[in-house]
Amino acid sequence: MKPAERISAFVNFGRTLSELTLEELEDISWRAENNNNWFTKESVEQALKGLAMMLDSDKLEAWLSSYELKVVEKPLSVGIMMAGNIPAVGFHDLMCVLLSGHVAVIKVSSSDEILLKWIIKKLVELEPRFEKQIRIEEMLKGMDAYIATGSDNSSRYFNYYFGKYPHVIRQNRTSVAVLSGNETTEDYISLGRDIFQYYGLGCRNVSKIYIKSRAQLQDLLGALEVYSPIASHHKYHNNYDYNKSIYLVNLED
Rank of each mutant, 00 (worst) to 15 (best):
L191I: 06
I195F: 06
F196L: 12
L201S: 03
C203E: 09
L220G: 03
R214Q: 14
H233D: 13
I230D: 01
Y198S: 08
N205A: 14
N205W: 05
A215N: 13
G192A: 10
Y210E: 04
S207C: 06
E225Q: 13
A215T: 11
A223H: 01
Q197V: 02
L220C: 06
S213K: 08
A231P: 00
H233P: 07
A231K: 12
F196A: 07
D187S: 10
V226I: 15
K212H: 09
G222R: 08
S213F: 05
Y210L: 13
A231L: 14
D194M: 12
Y198W: 10
G202E: 04
G192I: 07
V226H: 08
E186C: 02
R214A: 08
L217T: 07
D187A: 06
D194P: 03
L221H: 02
S213A: 05
S232H: 10
I230L: 14
T184I: 08
N182K: 14
V226C: 15
L224G: 01
H233V: 07
Y227Q: 06
R204F: 08
I189H: 02
G192E: 04
Q218W: 03
E225R: 11
L220R: 00
V226P: 06
K208C: 12
D219A: 12
R193W: 04
C203K: 03
I195G: 01
E183N: 15
I209F: 09
D194H: 15
L220F: 05
R193E: 14
Q216L: 06
Y198L: 10
N205C: 14
Y199S: 11
L224F: 05
I195R: 01
K212W: 00
Y188N: 03
Q218E: 15
I189G: 02
S232I: 01
Q216N: 11
Y198D: 10
R204I: 09
A231Y: 15
E183M: 09
A223I: 04
Y210H: 09
H233N: 13
Q197I: 02
Y227F: 15
E186K: 14
L201G: 00
S190F: 02
R193I: 11
P229W: 12
S228R: 14
L201R: 13
R204G: 10
L191R: 10
P229L: 11
D187I: 04
I230P: 00
G202N: 08
A223E: 01
I189K: 14
I230H: 07
R193F: 06
L221C: 14
L221Y: 05
Y210T: 02
E186A: 15
K208V: 14
I209E: 02
I209K: 02
L201E: 01
L224V: 09
Y188M: 07
E183K: 04
Y210C: 09
V206Q: 02
Q197E: 12
Q216S: 04
S213G: 08
S207K: 09
Y198E: 04
S190A: 13
G192M: 05
R193V: 08
Q216E: 14
P229T: 08
R193K: 13
V226K: 12
Y188G: 01
A223L: 02
H233W: 04
E186W: 05
L224E: 02
D194Q: 11
L191D: 07
Y210N: 04
D187T: 08
S207H: 05
I195T: 04
G200K: 06
N182D: 11
Y198Q: 07
S207P: 05
V206G: 03
E186G: 01
R214G: 03
